[in-house]
Design a protein around this nucleic acid. Structure first.
Length: 137
DNA sequence: GCCAACGTTGGC
DNA sequence: GCCAACGTTGGC
């Protein structure tokens, strides 16, 4: 079991829209970055992730689960790009902000804090548990 | 809206 | 294979 973080601008695709997709989930399409793609290729069904709102909010708003492993991105014919599907599991009771992450002991090494531009990133078990707890779950 | 950080592209 | 130019992301 591995843990991840998915960034989305809520203007483009929000947590509420993700929740509305229910059990079927949604293809996490549109990623055009090798590192982010490689992270998705490493994912297994059942892996969990944080759903993070970038730009507006700048906070983790919920937890998602990988429900389909990496397959070709339906929004391009370019064979380099594929992606997973994710479904909403539960919302955070309290959103966990980027600001929180910057000052929270134990999150100094977190990718979210140190590589702001990576849109699909790994999260360690320790980081996962801290943020989950701080989110009231 | 600006701009720093980073990734990608393409000329050499 | 290097690196300048350019494009994009995302925090502020």
């Amino acid at each position: 079991m591995n843990y991840w973080l998915f960034k989305s601008e809520p203007d483009a695709w929000s947590w509420d829209q993700q929740v509305a997709k229910g059990e079927e989930g949604e293809e996490w399409h549109g990623v055009r970055n090798y590192q982010a793609r490689n992270n998705m290729r490493a994912m297994k069904i059942g892996d969990l992730g944080f759903f993070y709102h970038s730009n507006i909010g700048k906070e983790v708003v919920g937890i998602v689960e990988v429900c389909r492993e990496s397959s070709p991105d339906s929004t391009t014919d370019d064979p380099r790009w594929d992606c997973v599907w994710i479904k909403a599991v539960e919302p955070m009771k309290r959103p966990f902000t980027l600001e929180d992450a910057k000052v929270m002991p134990g999150l100094e090494q977190m990718v979210l804090v140190n590589n702001t531009r990576l849109s699909v990133q790994p999260v360690t078990k320790e980081e996962w548990e801290i943020i989950r707890r701080e989110g009231g779950l």
